[in-house]
Design a binder for these strands. Structure first.
Lengths: 216, 216
DNA sequence: GACAGCATGTAATGAGTTACATGATTAA
DNA sequence: TTAATCATGTAACTCATTACATGCTGTC
């Protein structure tokens, strides 16, 4: 019965990986997904219930029915077969990278927009960055103080932290630069000065991301 | 008839925005999506056929049936109502940012992996970055030479270019750092030296992304 | 005269989201 | 004792992908 897996997805393995850190109730899984995977593999909470059932029906996890008051509560635990499946998955071909970036899309299509519409898009990007920083800063302190719940995994987690925290800074910087440009616009029409600054912006980016060249 | 829109999605508006630059056959739309939106709003090609029909049935675009040999070929053009819809959409609440990052996911769950598995994940991230740079570099030259097909939109496009090119550099840098760390590992177990370097990595990231502090 | 690759789609399936529902706990 | 919020799930729907199919064009 176990092993006849009806096509497990990356999301399934993401849940399975969470269970690798110890047994969890569904609610704990939901919260853990929010903490750990929100920024690298975002999924709706409701998905988790379905995936957990799938793990059980594939023999990769066990479900223990419990009670809290009159409500049922399910606790999941990974099985030995589950660990093996996790190892196999990790040994296979990695998934790629996909970015969906609403603000960039709106700017690219922004010819019919007003400058304030594009500023609103930039604001969304900035808020996203600020939220990541607000999550990341206290997290960093926990690691540095040695009191994070997964402290013994910090050699791995520091690698993802490195990416995410710096990406947040990256997004904020872009929002700063872009907002400064858009604030100079009265409309979204082309123009000679805009064109000149645009080419300089492209040069700056290609020149290895150095800060804008200052004419001394 | 037109205007009774059955819930248009962001993808629909992305296509509509493409049509804003001039009428296109379905095939041209597919290619344009690949060039312009691949990295900020990725969608399967087959999606485009469906969305284009939706635009027509909503009155936002017109379809002209043509022939190439005995096969039919459809050319789409935006309507005035479509332009208005585009403006309304741009004036509304922007979509957010969502990143799906397979390599990061695998590293986070990498305790059951071998170091070479994680190196394979890093390689995927690096290849993604290299591909973006390979697309971006000639594109930059086109803009700088003033010969890009949408040259008159460079004031907008430079803003998205700024983001994407630098993000590619960002990804490559992360891949370099991470690969250097992983090459020192014999396994994915915790360890005192790994722990020390991990904390330093976190400090470096929080210290505003400065390059690793060198003990002089 | 066939093979490769470009051009143009359709059908089936599934992954994922949104909306809803309801029980338990805590604070006012 | 109400309201808020935490905890736990289900149902309906749809967006999106994968796989397939077929015609056209140039070239060897």
């Amino acid at each position: 019965m176990a092993g006849v897996n009806p096509r497990l997805t990356t999301t399934t393995y993401a849940i399975l990986g969470q269970l690798g850190w110890g047994e969890q109730t569904t609610y704990e899984l939901v919260k853990a997904m929010g903490r750990n995977l929100r920024f690298i593999w975002p999924r709706a909470e409701s998905r988790i219930y379905e995936e957990a059932r799938r793990l059980v029906s594939s023999g990769l996890a066990t479900a223990r029915e419990g009670r809290s008051g009159r409500r049922r509560r399910t606790t999941y635990a990974i099985t030995e077969e589950g660990r093996q499946a996790l190892r196999n998955w990790l040994a296979g071909e990695p998934e790629g990278i996909a970015l969906e970036h609403g603000p960039l899309l709106r700017i690219l299509l922004g010819r019919q927009a007003r400058p304030e519409d594009l500023l609103a898009a930039v604001r969304v990007a900035r808020e996203h960055a600020e939220k990541m920083l607000a999550v990341g800063a206290p997290l960093a302190q926990e690691y540095l103080d040695g009191r994070h719940a997964q402290q013994q995994e910090v050699h791995l987690r520091s690698l993802t932290f490195d990416y995410l925290y710096r990406w947040a800074l990256f997004n904020r910087d872009w929002a700063d630069r872009t907002e400064a440009e858009l604030r100079r616009w009265r409309d979204t029409e082309p123009g000679a000065a805009k064109h000149r600054r645009a080419l300089q912006r492209i040069r700056d980016a290609v020149n290895h991301g150095l800060p804008p060249a200052r004419a001394a």
